[in-house]
Amino acid sequence: MTVIAAATGQAALRCRSVAVVFGKSEVLHRIDFDLSEGEWLGIIGPNGAGKSTLLRAIAGLTHYEGTVALHGGRVPSATDVALVPQSPILPAGMTVTEYVMLGRTAHLGWLSRESRSDRSLVGLVLRRLDLASFAERLVSELSGGEAQRVVLARALAQQAPILLLDEPTSALDLGHQMAVLELVDQLRQQDGLSVIAAMHDLTTAGRFADRLVLVEQGTVVDCGTPAEVLRQDQLSEVFRTPLQVRVLDGEIVVLPSPRRI
């Protein structure tokens, strides 16, 4: 299997007292966490908790206070972190190949011509994500699941060791949700990518993530393994609805409490 982004063998990313202020309201308040090499970190929490803002701060898309640094102290750029946005814009008339090539932007030279190696990398990524037969299709005409795979392909073409996923499966049905997450997990294991994913579904978050960060109103409420974080009392309080946490075949399942009729 071909490796697309090579592992560096170090702790991947460090966030220290990251705060984001929009106008007068503080959207993120002193967030701390570490991401290790090859780890899948799930960010969970209710709507408006600041999950997307945290990812945007890491990608450098919003102004923040505090430190976001790679190993060695460097602030990450587009060659270090690749963002898969929640609702990506798919321009009319653009083919899948052209779209995936956009991922090479940060690697291009001064005249911004695509080199031979850029082109062969795009071919490689397309093959890797089973998109070879889609190469000439228009991105605006893809189904939800196909489009998600194409956006993931663009992120892979960035050759960044850290993948940021902003609720990557919110528009997909159950089967496509699993397919995309399995694919990300495979890439992580085979290519040594590290993943930070804002995730809606607590059960899938518990299944795929190595560690979970629970965020509420811009503050980290809890951080740890899924078994530590996915506690019935804690989740019911944060999500403001009675939830039950069960273990089914060794896997943690989070469900709403049964309705009383």
Binding site: A59, T79, L83, P91, M94, A106
Partner: peptide, 13 residues
């Protein structure tokens, strides 16, 4: 690159 919007363009470098 700008066709995907300013935000995504910035994320692409």
């Amino acid at each position: 690159v700008l066709r995907v919007g300013d935000d995504e363009a910035r994320a692409l470098g």
